[in-house]
Design a protein around this nucleic acid. Structure first.
Length: 110
RNA sequence: GAGACAGCCAGACGGUUGCGUGGGGCAACUCACGAGGAAAGUCCGAGCACCACAGAGCAAGAGUGCAGGCUAACGGCCUGUGGAGGCGACUUCAAGGAAAGUGCAACAGAAAUAUACCGCAGCUAACGCUGUAAGGGUGGAAAUGCAGGGUAAGAGCCUACAUACGUCUUGGCGACAAUGCGUACAUGUAAACCCCACUCGGUGCAAGAAAUGAGACCAAAUGCCUGCUCGGCAUCUCGACAUAUUCGCUGGACGCUAUUGGUAACAGUAGCGGUAGACAGAUAACCGUCCAAUACAGAACUCGGCUUACAGACUGAACUCUUAC
RNA sequence: GGCACCAUAGCCAAGUGGUAAGGCAGAGCUCUGCAAAAGCUCCACCCCCAGUCCGAGUCUGGGUGGUGCCU
């Protein structure tokens, strides 16, 4: 997943947090709001409560891999933030399912 | 069979799809490299940068504390000395000074740095007086322990063996050790203040440098150098969505191997190697084979240590004890 | 990334190395016809592990968790 598809700045994250709509299931929370970005940009936020650095890096990489699988289908003009909910370890199949369902539920896939 | 010491590894190989940095190419694309022994804690020591070149004096504060060596330096390491532990191989210790001074030692106990409650012995008709510190009891600590002599009863009062201190000689670079002689006086606490010796300027890459935009304006004050006195330096403010851009940024007191010197830490010489550099921050997803199995854990300026976390293996010298033959 | 600070009962907290003050809350008892108020009593592994000391909440070292500041 190329870095141009990602949110970079703190103000971008703050904007999403303030203006976002959200959808969630037991695994993830997905925040999204309209923006002038084309294609859409996505950021990942993993809390320190989730675990130490190795665990946080692992869940972030798995989220990136799952999102990049859906990347061609995502509608342009949105900024997204994806946040994990569970504290236990994930397996990749569940992550991919959840992300796909959430994107569909939010109406962001073509 | 049970231990003791030293060291090393931290899954490997392959396939498909992807990520970061750098090189090549007009481009499509392609090639190379891509987290650790602790990257962690930030506990010490340095480099580097700015403050003045890191300064002078005074005061205060902080740290270290057996000896010799190693190191760029260190509070680190090595080899010893002494204490403590272990049958032993061996392990371990913030290990100067209590005779410079001050403070503290609750409760218990007769008495806590000075004493005589019970007791023992002598004298006395008795009250009591004198001598004593064997024994009892309290306490973490009560005038060195134990045996013999000695005595009215006792007591280093005397003697042997220990213990502690002082001192001569000898050995050792030294810490110190051994023998002899003398003494038995000095409670503990410095991880209480303190004394002695040595060391320490401050801030940390969010240090700092360059370039760019806007608005003021050339004056005597402001700021900084940890307190004071000197001495000195710099020179406006704001913004860029509180980390704009580029640099700092990775080749070093570097690593590995061999050899020489050294008990060792380490040092010298020769050869070989090229080893992340991001800025929302790169190692992932799926699968196959081997394996008994994969722990602790993710670089953010860089090194040397220390401390803490850690599954499972492996190696060395053949070191100690016990049992059997 | 760097630099500082804190941790004592459910909550707020005091605490010179020598028995852990106090307030609120909670539980029990007294009082009352029943309550409230009042009074009495109870409620602590001083964050954890080592060390120094005769003796650590306090002193020293290490760890855990939390808080603040630095452009």
């Amino acid at each position: 997943m190329k870095s141009i598809y990602r949110l970079k700045k703190n103000y971008q994250y703050n904007y999403v947090y303030k203006h976002a709509q959200s959808v969630a299931d037991k695994n993830f929370i997905l925040l999204y709001c309209t923006a002038h970005s084309n294609p859409s940009k996505i950021g990942f936020s993993v809390s320190k409560k989730y675990g130490h650095a190795v665990q946080r890096n692992r869940i972030r990489r798995q989220m990136k891999a799952a999102v990049s699988a859906f990347a061609p289908q995502i509608v342009a003009g949105y900024n997204l933030v994806l946040i994990p909910r569970k504290k236990e370890a994930y397996n990749y199949g569940d992550i991919a399912d959840s992300v796909g369902k959430l994107l569909q539920k939010a109406g962001l896939t073509q």
